[in-house]
């Protein structure tokens, strides 16, 4: 159920969240993708936690515990290995952390444009859906009805 929606992460928690977010979705300069620790994206993540805040705090604590409190001191390979290993068995806190990070990341204008998507809400402009190849249905149209008609008495029964 909904918990304290007015609660916020502390500055230290946001710092830890940023390190984890950067590990999960790092910057890719070649394709023009910012990292999830980009200030605008991280700010969006932090403002979007809402009812997930308790789970996010659990996630931050779990990552800290798994790294012995030294996540930031690990090299990149070590951080990525730890995150992937933890995420696979991390349960609800891991799923929530992943969801809030990508929820904010994949609505950032720079990210969407780099992916070839339009940076806008779906409504009111909508999108075009092709009709596709309706001639493919011709072979199906030729089939005899095969739903069971309960009004038909099977042969041999009366």
């Amino acid at each position: 159920m909904v918990t304290d929606l007015d609660a916020r992460l502390t500055a230290a928690e946001i710092l830890a969240l940023g390190r984890i977010a950067a590990t999960m979705v790092p910057e890719d300069a070649v394709s023009g993708m910012p990292g999830a620790d980009d200030p605008a994206i991280l700010d969006d993540i932090a403002r979007s936690l809402g009812r997930d805040l308790p789970l996010i705090r659990e996630a931050l604590a779990a990552v800290a515990a798994k790294s012995g409190g030294a996540f930031a001191a690990l090299d990149r390979d070590g951080r990525e290995a730890l995150i992937n290993d933890w995420y696979a068995g991390g349960g609800a806190p891991a799923v929530a952390l992943g969801r809030v990070i990508v929820g904010a990341y994949y609505r950032d204008d720079r990210v969407l444009l780099a992916l070839g998507h339009e940076a806008r809400a779906p409504f009111p402009k909508g999108y075009v859906l092709e009709q596709g190849d309706w001639s493919l249905l011709d072979v199906v149209r030729g089939r005899q009805p095969f739903w069971r008609d309960d009004r038909v008495v099977p042969a041999g029964e009366s």
Partner: peptide, 30 residues
């Protein structure tokens, strides 16, 4: 699905890794 939902589905199904290979793999899913 939309971009964020695809990332959630990919990660929870184990098809989308976290880290430096995330972007390459993601483009093959979205």
């Amino acid at each position: 699905t939309g971009p964020a939902t695809q990332a959630v589905i990919g990660a929870t199904s184990g098809l989308l890794p976290w880290g430096r290979d995330h972007h390459r793999q993601y483009r093959q899913l979205l």
